[in-house]
């Protein structure tokens, strides 16, 4: 019965269908793995360490011998001193009044106890 032409044709068709299904399954797995890798990379890039602040006094570009370049670089020197200066005084110094130390002197005694 297995040698019947019709049976042979059916068996041949089933193997072809199976191969197609196997190929589709492999493709799905490959796509899933790829998508997972991409998602992991994206997640890593958003939770990575914050960029380090650059040293404001360091040259942003290497000296080229251009006068304009040199003048621009030298003029940047003003920014640092201004930053350091403006930070000072932003916080008002504490005093014995601001911390209540002086006011506490009035509680040295309770005259009602005498």
């Amino acid at each position: 019965m297995g040698n019947h032409p019709l049976v042979k044709k059916i068996m041949k068709d089933q193997r072809g269908t199976a191969m197609v299904l196997e190929l589709l399954l492999v493709a799905v797995v490959v796509l899933a793995v790829g998508a997972a890798l991409i998602a992991r990379n994206n997640a890593a890039s958003t939770t990575g360490p914050a960029p380090q602040a650059k040293n404001s006094s360091k040259l942003s570009t290497a000296p080229t011998g251009s006068v304009d370049n040199a003048v621009d670089a030298i003029s940047q020197e003003t920014a640092g001193d201004q930053t350091a200066a403006s930070e000072e005084g932003a916080v008002v110094p504490q005093t014995d009044l601001s911390t209540g130390s002086a006011q506490n002197v009035e509680t040295s005694y309770n005259e009602n106890n005498f």
Partner: peptide
Amino acid sequence: QWDTDRQQNFTAL
């Protein structure tokens, strides 16, 4: 640091 950077510019000039 600015002294160092400035000297580099002088040298390039």
